[in-house]
């Protein structure tokens, strides 16, 4: 479709130009938004395309953040090594968790993913020697892109790294959902029993996509740690998992781009709220309830519906 290609191109140009337009703190906020967007997009792979509602996706973001922080702090490797470490650790932990969780379906799956995520959260909280407990790991450096290569210390340079990761991930995820594998996922979402009777066990498919989603969430977390300079148990907390679901719903489930936009909007709302009150989480909760009741289709879905009416 021409219009969507055009808007994609426009978005790419905008991403390339903004660093010279925005002030430093704005650019830093945008980087934050993009990282959250990558997280929400990874959740959409399992939630929107496979119909598996994970209530513990923050755990993989957190694992990515911790792995990245430790690699950067203790081994002083270039940032991409830390990104790889974050993505791999998240994916590796997702294998056993996914193996157990995908034995259950529907609401049981949601409860199991939450239970495992809280388990990982508690580990991060209690394993003081490695994770620094509730204080987390601070002082995570922004090492260069490679030894002798360009520095990532400036907010503009790091923004470009994040933007490149997000755009690249978006393209990879899009290819995945359009591949034979991705088509199979959507069939599982629509009717698992029918899928089984057509000749395949859905569980290996669910496990693989669960791990892929964890890898991308881990990548997002691995970007987060050097960007913010710390990793703490909060990024693995259940609240963040629930917020991830909300970002996907707000943006439009099963669209990949929608959740990125949903995440950006969600974080923006939080930013605005938190500038007025310390207890912005109450209002986040209210926004949650209102959107679930009144805008179930999310932004993309609601815009489409309004467009169809107009």
């Amino acid at each position: 479709m021409i219009p969507s290609r055009l808007s994609a191109l426009a978005a790419l140009v905008a991403l390339a130009v903004v660093p010279w337009v925005l002030a430093r703190h704005q650019l830093s906020l945008l980087t934050d938004l993009l990282i959250a967007g990558l997280f929400a997009m990874s959740l959409d792979l399992i939630m929107g395309y496979t119909g598996m509602v994970s209530f513990g996706h923050a755990a993989y973001f957190g694992l990515g953040a911790y792995a990245s922080a430790l690699v950067l702090l203790h081994f002083a490797q270039p940032v991409p090594v830390a990104l790889l470490a974050g993505a791999l650790l998240a994916g590796a932990v997702a294998v056993p968790v996914g193996w157990f969780s995908t034995r259950a379906t529907g609401i049981y799956f949601a409860m199991l993913t939450l239970a495992f995520a809280q388990f990982l959260y508690t580990v991060a909280y209690k394993w003081r020697d490695l994770t620094g407990g509730s204080d987390g790991i601070a002082g995570v450096p922004k090492t260069p892109l490679f030894w002798g290569g360009p520095s990532l210390a400036s907010s503009r340079a790091f923004y470009f790294l994040v933007a490149a990761c997000v755009v690249l991930s978006l393209f990879v995820c899009r290819a995945v959902v359009r591949s034979p594998f991705g088509r199979a996922l959507q069939a599982i979402r629509e009717n698992e029993r029918r899928f089984t009777s057509l000749g395949r066990d859905p569980r290996p498919f669910k496990l693989v996509v669960f791990v892929i989603a964890a890898v991308f969430a881990g990548l997002a977390g691995a970007l987060f740690a050097p960007f913010r300079g710390f990793a703490s148990p909060e990024v693995m907390f259940w609240v963040f998992s629930g917020q991830g679901l909300m970002m996907v719903i707000m943006g439009g489930i099963g669209t990949l781009v929608g959740p990125v936009l949903g995440a950006m909007l969600f974080i923006l709302i939080q930013e605005v709220l938190s500038s007025y009150t310390e207890h912005w989480m109450i209002f986040t909760g209210v926004v949650f309830v209102l959107i679930v009741i009144f805008l179930p289709g999310g932004l993309v879905g609601t815009a489409r519906r309004l467009g169809a009416r107009g």
């Binding site: 939630m47 509602v53 949601a110 986040t284 949650f288």
Partner: peptide, 12 residues
Amino acid sequence: IYQLLLTFGLAL
């Protein structure tokens, strides 16, 4: 999922 999210909002 919507009911779960709604009760999540209430919990917050």
